[in-house]
Design a protein around this nucleic acid. Structure first.
Lengths: 332, 332
DNA sequence: CTGTTAGCGCTTTCAG
DNA sequence: CTGAAAGCGCTAACAG
């Protein structure tokens, strides 16, 4: 059912139908009513694709993700909540494959959809942060850190400080850090927070107790094992994300160490899985939904052509993180 | 950056570039290489929109939802997992507004995207289940019940029986039911399961303790309040979905009732949020991710033109539900 | 007020 | 092997 079909049925031209659909002036009330009737009757709905190709305005905001996993879907929920009421529609798109094997997915997805299908885009954890293209873009938690793009992220440093101070406050001194992925901004910042808090407390950081965990279970178990099998074992581990913290608890169990009896563990993110862990994981919560909400607000501003508000010509929203104490930590 | 730009830069025609991009025969190796080089250099990526308008094949599967809430996002995770490896890409689209005010969103979204942008569609909890249109369609948990469309759903009746029996087994007799939305199949079936189990146990159902919760926080709090403020308060509430169960716990807290001390609460769905609730919610798990996976399998079969396999000419997959006991229920 | 025309970026015949 | 031309469904100018 195309606009031509409707036009034929209504005995008018396609242009007229288009005008009716889009509420343009210059159509007699009688014609409008008639065409409306036909549209109603046959259930015509204009093709987003064709319309966008021609008019370059779709009223659709795109949220581009590497894949639909717990973190990105939480963000999506946040954007969805923020978008209702703005009159925009939401389109979430995943370039398909695993993020790993698909570097540059953000640029690819953006060129495929941008300029036509969507009026603006939110990029979730993009790696390559090239300057914007055809449409306004906001980045959430970019891997390369704030760039020239408007950005929303969480306070990684502060979160890491909170986690470390929590451990310190519990009397731990010999604390290991299981890092994220080298080259990722969040990874760097969490380590920075860790070191800052340790230094402030006068607790030494044993270089032997700092490892690369890679943010994923497969890459984290090895290093976690090294940490826990260390001759002078740490009494606590701060892992750079929940997934590797949970992996660490698994390793501890294998080694016959009780958590939190023999070992305290803190994670980062507060993904739903962290509550299900045994014991429930103490972690740092990132306000994922709020991040989505902020991104929408920023983007809508941008799309309305609001003047840049930040002094540096870009815009950067940093949301607070907060410590969530559960069962995986205990006083020494 | 359009195909014309690339053509100009490469000194060939747009048609030739198209052939290179799509790997068509009839282009000299030398030209292919040269054009590839230019494409690489300028980072050209063909517009999904323009391509789809012309060729009607996009390799994109659409998952159409009324809104991005916990249930639909879990389904999306499942479809995403199932899709990786099939070569398809995933595009999740929400017709924008609140589901309430937007009856018929599924047909609207389908006509807007179908036929051009997506090769097939998965509809999550569609209400109006008109026969398919231009593209193959699979419905997940259709509100009107299995129709002529291939359908994936969970065993609602059995799940509701399990939940009710759990409460009965705990010694509860005065159990309230906070229903879903009238007219929705899942709502009807869950109530049916509730009544069946109550009847089987010889426990009376007080009509005063059966309310419409509407499946959403906003619509559920009112009725939940009525239930809990009832002169002869129930000792347990079975809410037709997790969201309203969580809302019920909120109301209980406001009224100074402790859960599970003064009131046991059971939900339905097992969305991630149910674990995060305080206390963690006892609920009936729908295998949401598995439902998404099944839907993808069904859809891909359909798109490959597989013969209908079910005896009734349609296809219907029903997945089992299961009770998940957490902290919101306690023996009387 | 209405219809005709052109063209969005791309693919697909079909000539050359 | 390559390019010119047509057209997907729609909208924006412009003519009538």
């Amino acid at each position: 059912m195309t606009i031509t079909d409707v036009a034929r049925l209504a005995g008018v031209s396609a242009a007229t139908v288009s005008k009716v659909v889009n509420g343009r002036y210059g159509v007699s009330a009688r014609t409008v009513e008639h065409v409306r009737g036909v549209i109603e009757e046959v259930g015509y709905e204009s093709s987003l694709v064709a319309r966008s190709l021609r008019s370059h305005r779709t009223n659709v905001i795109g949220i581009l993700v590497a894949e639909f996993e717990p973190f990105s879907t939480e963000i999506i929920k946040g954007t969805a909540a923020a978008i209702s009421g703005t009159g925009y529609e939401l389109l979430a798109y995943s370039g398909g494959g695993r993020a790993e094997e698909d570097a540059g997915w953000e640029r690819r997805s953006l060129s495929r959809l941008g300029g036509t299908l969507i009026d603006g885009a939110i990029l979730v954890t993009p790696t390559v942060v090239g300057a914007a293209g055809a449409v306004p873009v906001v980045a959430i938690d970019p891997h390369a850190g704030p760039s020239d793009l408007p950005t929303v992220d969480a306070d990684n440093v502060r979160g890491a400080v909170l986690a470390t101070e929590h451990l310190l406050g519990l009397g731990h001194r010999r604390i290991a850090f299981l890092g994220g992925r080298p080259g990722l901004e969040s990874s760097r910042l969490r380590e920075e927070g860790f070191r800052t808090a340790m230094a402030a407390a006068g607790a030494p950081v044993d270089p032997d107790l700092v490892r690369v965990g890679g943010y994923r279970p497969q890459t984290a178990t090895g290093p976690a094992h090294e940490l826990l099998a260390h001759p002078d074992r740490p009494s606590a581990v701060f892992a750079a994300n929940d997934v590797s913290a949970i992996a660490t608890m698994g390793v501890a169990r294998e080694l016959g160490l009780s958590v939190p009896g023999d070992l305290s563990v803190v994670g980062f993110d507060n993904v739903p899985e962290s509550v299900l862990a045994e014991p429930p994981l103490t972690t740092v919560s990132q306000p994922m939904q709020a991040m989505g909400t902020s991104a929408v607000q920023l983007l809508v501003q941008l799309m309305n052509g609001s003047p840049e508000t930040a002094p540096d010509g870009g815009t950067h929203v940093r949301l607070p993180t907060e410590l969530v104490v559960r069962g995986s930590t205990r006083a020494l």
